[in-house]
Deep mutational scan, measured.
Amino acid sequence: MLDDRARMEAAKKEKVEQILAEFQLQEEDLKKVMRRMQKEMDRGLRLETHEEASVKMLPTYVRSTPEGSEVGDFLSLDLGGTNFRVMLVKVGEGEEGQWSVKTKHQMYSIPEDAMTGTAEMLFDYISECISDFLDKHQMKHKKLPLGFTFSFPVRHEDIDKGILLNWTKGFKASGAEGNNVVGLLRDAIKRRGDFEMDVVAMVNDTVATMISCYYEDHQCEVGMIVGTGCNACYMEEMQNVELVEGDEGRMCVNTEWGAFGDSGELDEFLLEYDRLVDESSANPGQQLYEKLIGGKYMGELVRLVLLRLVDENLLFHGEASEQLRTRGAFETRFVSQVESDTGDRKQIYNILSTLGLRPSTTDCDIVRRACESVSTRAAHMCSAGLAGVINRMRESRSEDVMRITVGVDGSVYKLHPSFKERFHASVRRLTPSCEITFIESEEGSGRGAALVSAVACKKACMLGQ
């Protein structure tokens, strides 16, 4: 009897593995994704193909990295998701002549009506938060230079001027797309009239992360975010950046690689679950690469896999709870928690219980395998993109072996128990001629924006502006 049951459990697990095998990517698959990513990057950089390229390769006008001589107080704003952060950054000489960066910050959550109302409502709310922060720190009387981390696709015309191309991540505030974001912020500050600010720089969160990590390690020339969304930036040779005049030196390019796949480059790798996630998203047909990796989508992918296993009578005796059938019910943090389970399955059992399920031991094991399959594919897909960037940098610099540091931020990278190990191992397999160091950014977005502002202020002083 026991043997029969054991055989049935083994057969069930084997069927589960057959279904989950769809998520496995072979090294040849990853090399294919990497080569296609490089081709799209090239198209994004070139003037004649930029418009139709899915990977936009947006110039950021960040050319210099901090040298350690900029000092002063800077205000930093960070808008990239449902939370908005205001930070005071003091850049100065530390002990023994070292450079020191001290920060104080406060988080504000953005109400739904500000995210989806008008641009005026959104930026009025942001300036209200700045006003509140300055009151708390008794700094209303000071006109501070301000660095703005704005983590949406922007076409820069200068370091302090950028046109919002399109909202992502659930934002829909009308009247912002096609307009200068810094102008919208300046107008809102003017409307309030109770404080003055000098907006000197606007950067993407990947750029802010790279600059913040450069402060720790001067070989950091790539910034990457794996959180709600997924994106990367890197220092490109100016001669390859056709959208900006000049051939000397390097400029940081914001790849906006989340949109890779929007022209069909990933079609052969998309599964039924991916198509369902895409169809029910706020932007169907867009940001397809990001939807395979980002935390906004990972939990939902797992939920759809679990429903398939229920329908195949391989999980929960073929019956799903009402909660499990509800879109968004299986949160991405559950994926991390399930994979963090120590082996007694308590954590998995508790999560499934909150979803109205009474799982068996085998159910718990199957749910864990589903989570591992989805998150491992995410790590491997992400590795193909980064390997594409790094191999490109090595080739354009004609280096036999390139040493490089990548600064990384984002909740999936930082909080998932195995993502970074799987990701690092896969990147290294795909970049055999590179020695890569990964560092995690601390308060990256805010500190990085302030350091970019410090560079901009120093330049302005040198130019006598």
Results as ranks from 00 to 15, higher is better:
Gln98Tyr: 03
Ala425Glu: 12
His50Lys: 03
Glu442Tyr: 15
Leu45Lys: 04
Ala379Tyr: 00
Val367His: 05
Glu52Trp: 09
Arg46Gln: 05
Glu268Val: 13
Leu88Gly: 07
His105Phe: 08
Glu96Asn: 12
Thr362Leu: 08
Arg43Ala: 08
Glu48Asp: 06
Arg5Pro: 09
Gln24Phe: 11
Ala10Trp: 09
Thr437Ala: 13
Pro417Thr: 08
Asn83Gln: 05
Gly80Asn: 03
Arg447Thr: 09
Glu312Asp: 14
Pro359Asn: 08
Val55Trp: 05
Glu242Cys: 09
Ala384Ser: 08
Gly410Phe: 03
Gln24Gly: 12
Ile293Asp: 02
Lys459Ile: 05
Val222Lys: 00
Ser280Tyr: 09
Ala370Glu: 00
Glu51Ser: 14
Tyr234Lys: 00
Thr149Asn: 03
Val16Gly: 10
Cys129Ser: 04
Thr255Ser: 05
Gly264Lys: 14
Asn283Val: 10
Asp247Glu: 12
Gly178Asp: 06
Pro432Asp: 15
Ser321Gln: 11
Ala232Ser: 14
Arg392Pro: 02
Ser321Lys: 15
Asp113Arg: 11
Arg186Asp: 14
Ser445Pro: 03
Phe84Ser: 03
Phe133Arg: 03
Val277Gln: 09
Thr209Ser: 15
Glu256Phe: 00
Arg275Cys: 08
Leu355Lys: 05
Arg250Val: 08
Ser441Phe: 00
Asp135Cys: 10
Arg192Ser: 04
Ala387Phe: 00
Cys457Tyr: 12
Thr49Lys: 12
Gly223Phe: 02
Ala454Ile: 12
Ser321Phe: 07
Glu14Thr: 08
Glu40Thr: 08
Leu270Val: 12
Val200His: 01
Leu463Ile: 10
Gly264Ile: 03
Arg250Ile: 14
Phe84Pro: 00
His137Asn: 06
Asp4Ser: 12
Ile163Lys: 02
Val241His: 10
Gly193Gln: 07
Gly193Phe: 06
Gln465Leu: 14
Ile163Ala: 03
Gly193Thr: 11
Ile404Arg: 06
Asn83His: 02
His105Thr: 04
Leu307Thr: 15
Arg428Ser: 12
Gln138Cys: 02
Tyr125Cys: 04
Glu279Tyr: 15
Asn391Val: 09
Glu27Gln: 10
Glu421Asn: 15
Arg275Ala: 14
Lys346Pro: 13
Val62Pro: 00
Asn83Leu: 03
Arg403Ile: 07
Val389Met: 15
Gly285Trp: 11
Ile439Lys: 13
Glu70Thr: 13
Phe152Gln: 00
Leu184Gln: 02
Thr376Gly: 12
Val452Cys: 15
Glu265Ala: 10
Asp341Met: 14
Lys31Glu: 12
Ala10Arg: 14
Gly162Thr: 01
Lys414Gly: 10
Leu304Glu: 07
Arg186Thr: 04
Asp198Asn: 09
Tyr125Gln: 03
Gln38Val: 10
Tyr297Asp: 14
Asp217Val: 14
Arg303Gln: 06
Val310Glu: 00
Ser212Phe: 04
Gly299Thr: 02
Leu292Pro: 13
Thr60Tyr: 01
Arg377Asp: 01
Thr362His: 11
Gly295Gln: 03
Met57Cys: 14
Asn179Ala: 09
Trp167Glu: 03
Arg368Val: 12
Leu144Arg: 13
Arg7Pro: 10
Ser76Cys: 04
Thr431Val: 09
Glu440Ala: 11
Ile351Val: 10
Ala449Asn: 08
Phe171Cys: 00
Lys143Met: 02
Met462Gly: 14
Asp344Ala: 10
Cys220Arg: 00
Gly81Ile: 10
Glu120Pro: 02
Cys230Lys: 09
Glu421Asp: 08
Glu27Arg: 09
Arg358Met: 14
Arg5Leu: 12
Arg155Ser: 05
Arg358Cys: 08
Met41Gln: 10
Ala329Pro: 14
Cys233Lys: 01
Gly385Ala: 02
Phe419Trp: 11
Ser441Ala: 11
Glu322Val: 14
Ala454Met: 14
Phe133Ala: 00
Glu120Ile: 09
Ile19Asp: 13
Ala10Ser: 09
Asp278Met: 15
Arg377His: 02
Glu245Pro: 14
Met202Arg: 02
Tyr234Ser: 04
Arg192Cys: 05
Ser281Val: 06
Phe195Pro: 00
Glu22Gln: 13
Leu77Gln: 01
Glu14Pro: 13
Leu355Val: 09
Thr255Pro: 01
Arg275Val: 14
Asp3His: 13
